[in-house]
Amino acid sequence: MSDRTPDRVALLALPALVYMVIVFAIPVMVLIGRSFFGPSGLSVTPYIDFLSDGFNWRVIFNTLRTAALTTLVCLVIGYPTALALSWSKGFVQAIMLVAIILPLSVGVIVKAFAWQIVLRRDGIVASLLMATGVWDEPKLLLFTETGLVLGAANIFLPFMILPIYSVLKLIDPSLQHAAATLGAPPVYRFFRLSLPLAASGIISGCSIVFSLATSMYVIPSLLIGDRYQTLPTLTARAFLLMRNERLGSTTATILLFLTIAIVMLTAWLVRRREVQT
């Protein structure tokens, strides 16, 4: 093959690249840039104004808190599920894969609306807790933080299970046997063998779920309502209801930087682990 061919092949990337630069990169850059420009040139006034309001700190706190709780719930129930999935074979494995892939492919609005029904005072969670005697009287879970975290964890759970599963299935099962034969107790094996080997999957699962939960909009607006504002709901409100684009640009940029920080932190954690091992 001649030397010219590779250069000509590179041209094939141009349509997508040009499109993404014009319709995606430049608008996002302009959004960030504009949020730092006041009427009198470069300024951080919008951010100072935003951060000097206690309500807005509450909004940032709400966003991070819900995202952290959702990630925690997903990790605690997602890890055992990924482990069981890596043990499973044949029909059981097929059932589990369908149970993960099908909800993942169904739209967020469909699932959030279903959770509105589930979390009602006469919904199935309340009925279940009443029947088992945990609750004496029916309570409303909808419009509470518990309800929001439950719904969000349900919707984002596949994004925790799949990365952990993809690492666990590569671990050689004979390692466990070897460690056991050499007399390592189960707890020691879990912390010194399984967990370090699965760490990259856990890191990426947590990172995906945390950033999805940080930027979720439909789930809080259907499951908790206007009382509980997060950065995405406030951003959407600023643009769609309050027509306050300055506020909206500020919150959108904070949200954007938060997401980029999560991505960079994850990359750093993964790299540091690779250096160690």
Partner: peptide, 16 residues
């Protein structure tokens, strides 16, 4: 836990 999670994941679709 895995069995309960499968039920949990199916819940919104079945309810709908």
């Amino acid at each position: 836990v895995a069995t309960l999670v499968v039920v949990f994941l199916a819940t919104p679709l079945v309810v709908t």
